[in-house]
């Protein structure tokens, strides 16, 4: 049956490009956090792949093992990106087990998980090991691992942080989130290889910036220029860049139409600023994305593509 030809796109090709797009930020984390970053990355990737293989083989008894599609590697890398570089091995392994086991395979594996597996793993660790997950090593301790000197996240005192440091990544934080510039380079790679469209990341950036300006303005007591500066720092600090570019754009857990993607992005931006400004956590990106993941089926139902020769119907 037709069509008798295929465009040649594959899951693997997409995963390869995602991995390629993560490389600038990954290399920067190796440069910033040295040995610890290498250990965390390797542990996370290897344990994600191993868990997926084991679950496929012994629990799901899948005749065809799915590790070759590289999606477990991507999950492993993303999980590592979300962890501090001084995290002990056993915590990483527990995180990987939860991400792959509970976040992905319980729902049937690739394509069926409602929530982003790497974020499920990260949030599980954040709740289970709150102290270890929120003490970030100071950069440039090349040979340190669990013994690294730590400091609070710049998010705790954003007013005094330097925007240039935040943008170029000269700060502490989760491994992959520190350099906004290199994450944006990854964004460019994803766009050029047509793995993702611009809709989700851009709508998150715009919405987070606008809501941040709005809330600070309502709170008052600051000149408008400072408010804008502070809002820009919000975008560059913490997980917004990483989340918007690599986590919220996960195919499986994001909406199917461009209109849906814009709604999804705007609401993530809104939620993350609400959590950061009014919540108990200094960081809210993981929660914002996971909450919106839950709304994706609803968004898909509400936002149908524009049909040929018809106005958009609900």
């Amino acid at each position: 049956m037709s069509p008798h030809v295929h465009g040649g796109d594959s899951v693997k090709r997409n995963m390869r490009w995602v991995i390629a797009a993560m490389m600038p930020a990954l290399l920067w984390s190796f440069y910033s956090f040295g040995l610890g970053a290498v250990v965390v990355t390797l542990t996370s990737v290897v344990s994600c792949v191993v868990f997926e293989w084991v679950i496929n083989k012994f629990i799901l008894r899948n005749p065809r093992n799915t590790i070759a599609d590289l999606s477990a590697v991507v999950t492993g890398l993303l999980l590592a990106f979300n962890l501090p570089s001084n995290l002990p091995l056993y915590i990483i392994i527990v995180g990987a087990l939860f991400a792959i086991g509970v976040g992905k395979m319980t729902f049937g594996g690739l394509g069926n998980n409602p929530f982003n597996p790497a974020l499920v793993g990260r949030v599980f660790l954040l709740i289970s090991f709150p102290v270890k997950m929120t003490s970030w090593p100071v950069p440039h301790q090349m040979s340190a691992y669990t013994d690294a000197v730590t400091a609070a996240t710049p998010l705790a005192d954003l007013g005094n942080a330097n925007l240039a440091d935040l943008f170029f990544g000269n700060i502490g934080g989760s491994m992959g989130e520190v350099s906004a510039l290199l994450l944006l380079a990854g964004f460019l790679i994803l766009l050029c290889s047509k793995v993702i469209s611009w809709h989700i990341p851009i709508s998150i950036f715009v919405s987070a910036f606008c809501f941040s300006v709005l809330f600070y303005a309502i709170r008052g007591g600051m000149p408008f220029a400072d408010i804008c500066m502070l809002s820009l720092k919000h975008l560059c600090a913490g997980g917004i860049m990483l989340g918007a570019i690599f986590m919220a754009t996960d195919y499986v857990t994001s909406p199917m139409t461009h209109k849906g993607m814009l709604i999804y992005g705007v609401l993530i931006g809104f939620l993350v600023i609400c959590i950061r400004l009014f919540g108990n956590y200094p960081e809210g990106m993981s929660f914002a994305i996971l909450i919106m993941n839950a709304f994706v089926p609803l968004i898909n139902n509400a936002c149908k593509p524009k049909r040929f020769a018809k106005e958009v119907k609900k």
């Binding site: 394509g111 195919y251 499986v252 994001s254 049909r307 040929f308």
Partner: peptide, 18 residues
Amino acid sequence: MPCIRCSKCVSACPMGLE
């Protein structure tokens, strides 16, 4: 392979279907 919900088919459909 399983559908990964990449939405490329939605973007490709010339009739605006899913």
